[in-house]
Write a protein that binds this DNA or RNA. Structure first.
Lengths: 67, 67
DNA sequence: TCATAATGTCAAGTATTTTTTACATAAATC
DNA sequence: GATTTATGTAAAAAATACTTGACATTATGA
């Protein structure tokens, strides 16, 4: 499923996928795939993304509770 | 660097590396390597570990601040 | 309309995670 | 002493994260 929290946090910093990719050292396609929810990034990449966006792992990557 | 928080959380549930491996669906060596800090697990595996141990991503995997 | 920026996606290749198998050591129990 | 449990480690193979390059769509602005 999509990671809308990541998308929102990125928008909150006014960064494009490409900007975030460069800041985290991965390709644009990787950021796109993570937001799309296609896959399963490594924890180090998640941490790098969190640091750029000023968020924590729980805020961006902990699964949302669906009551 | 070693993930001592993970090791402690596992000990707190009285689980061996092998127990945790089975509960999270990976090999014992993978758990060992993560605790040893050798590498970079995927976020889904981190989440699975957190769920078994009753912790969050931030508690087990957010880098410790070294003042 | 034309150009550009942002995003989605696909296919093929590379890099790294993870498995499997195996052997080693230390501690606990019989 | 022998056996079992827990852990460390290593090498080859399998699975998958990630890259590169390419092409498409949509939206924005000159």
């Amino acid at each position: 499923m999509k990671n809308l929290r990541l998308k929102a946090a990125r928008a909150g910093k006014d960064l494009s996928q490409d900007d975030l990719a460069k800041l985290t050292g991965v390709s644009r396609q990787t950021i796109s795939a993570i937001e799309k929810g296609d896959y399963n990034p490594t924890i180090n990449l998640c941490i790098a993304i969190c640091r750029v966006l000023g968020k924590t792992l729980d805020e961006l990557f902990w699964p949302e509770e669906n009551t």
